[in-house]
Design a protein around this nucleic acid. Structure first.
Lengths: 245, 245
DNA sequence: CGCCTACTTGACTTACTTCAAAAACAGTGG
DNA sequence: CCACTGTTTTTGAAGTAAGTCAAGTAGGCG
């Protein structure tokens, strides 16, 4: 349970300097932790949430519903992320959130967050910055899905996720959990499932990475980075060192 | 010159209730207005700006530079928008800004904005909300460029721009200024220039809209909306009424 | 008038989608 | 433990939408 506060603090400190007083304010927040099944929705498009979510463990996805009932995945979130901080100032959800694999999510009342922001503006700025980093990731997704060929598109996604997982200390050796199906990958990258599979096969054959049993394995980081035309500047992390695989 | 304050206030009031004290704080900001030529860059990828931009008139674009030297356009901004409010809390620009047609842009020192946020938290929240609306527009762009067929993709873009132009009181009758070239349209929607032209021709033929001499004409709003699978919820505007064309 | 840029159109090529079916895998219950 | 069901992944073959290439037209400006 303490873990929930720690992962949030670790994440915010990744980009913002917070004082001991700021951290105390964070640790005073009321967290309600709930566990979710793979693919379980926990915030739906159209909802007007009064709590913000914090990913404690597992992966969480944000998605648009499409006219035909399909989904467009917009972003993935890891331990420590606030995947709907935007809900603080935007009344109605324009997208939904679901657990990707099994995930545990803490909920924080908006009311308490507003009060904390008032007392500790630096905390508010950290959360604001968090939403801005989100936006930077959205921008990169626009470019990725619009301007890069299929293979680079997929490589770029895995580069980003691996890089972020590493910052969140979720990488062990050359691998991290990645409970995402081919269908979901297609609904993320805007490609047909057959293409997803064939493109993934190419990446495997290149020896740069593998994805199996819900685990991402990066065998040649620099090669994967090259294939994905990935440069991490847009993630705006203070620590710049790349994965050393 | 007064106009610069007014367009900002009008835009913020579109989504946030501000008191007379908040507005006074805004009117006390130091604005430096500069005019730009069509396609002139005014913030470059990699810059570390110390001012925020405010679009006073004309249209402004945000774009990523691509490896090959090409561009991916990320968003367009109209009168009253703060196209790089994110620069307040993110040190280094991960994208550039340029004028689309001739544009006039006001610059506001970050320092003054931070001070104003401290004195009038509601103003800070309004700007924060502004950055969140930005993010909502980015999300929609991901879906648009990834999941919609070419014609819908283009129709959707024009729906959004027309709807926002209307909220910014830039629509006169059934038309508004839209100084965007076919090449730029292609670099926005992720399609080849030939396809842009053919798709645009289809839309013209449908009678729903036209684009000529830097002007967008919406002849049948409901039809264009249908073609673009457009529903404006994600823009989160308080006033909901659609264009009555 | 001539140059440059932006738009338009046509013919060709290909990368991706669609469709279909098989193989691998996970979960369930006998 | 194995048979049965449903889901996810893999592979193949065929069709097509969109990209590329190339040439031509129109519009704006010195």
């Amino acid at each position: 349970m303490e873990k929930a506060y720690d992962v949030l603090i670790r994440n915010l400190c990744e980009h913002t300097a917070l004082t001991e007083e700021d951290l105390a304010e964070i640790r005073a927040l009321t967290l309600t932790v709930r566990d979710f099944e793979p693919n379980e929705d926990f915030i739906r498009q159209g909802d007007k949430p009064e709590h913000s979510a914090l990913v404690v463990s597992g992966m969480v996805a944000r998605y648009h519903l499409l006219a035909g009932g399909g989904r467009q995945y917009l972003a993935f979130h890891l331990t420590g992320d606030l995947p709907d901080a935007q809900g603080l100032f935007i009344d109605q959800m324009d997208h939904g959130l679901s657990a990707l694999g099994p995930a545990s999510v803490a909920f924080i009342p908006h009311r308490e967050l507003f009060a904390a922001f008032r007392r500790r503006p630096a905390f508010g700025e950290a959360v604001w910055r968090e939403t801005l980093l989100d936006a930077a990731i959205f921008r990169e997704a626009i470019t990725n899905n619009s301007a890069r060929p299929m293979q680079a598109r997929m490589a770029h996604l895995f580069c980003e996720l691996f890089y972020r997982a590493r910052a969140a200390q979720l990488v062990r050796g050359d691998r991290c959990r990645m409970p995402i199906s081919l269908v979901q990958l297609g609904e993320t990258l805007g490609m047909a499932i057959a293409t997803v599979n064939r493109t993934l096969a190419e990446l495997r054959r290149s020896g740069a990475m593998d994805l199996r049993e819900g685990e991402l394995i990066v065998r040649k980081w620099r090669e994967l980075q090259r294939l994905g035309d990935f440069s991490p500047a847009y993630l705006h992390l203070k620590r710049k060192s790349p994965p050393k695989v």
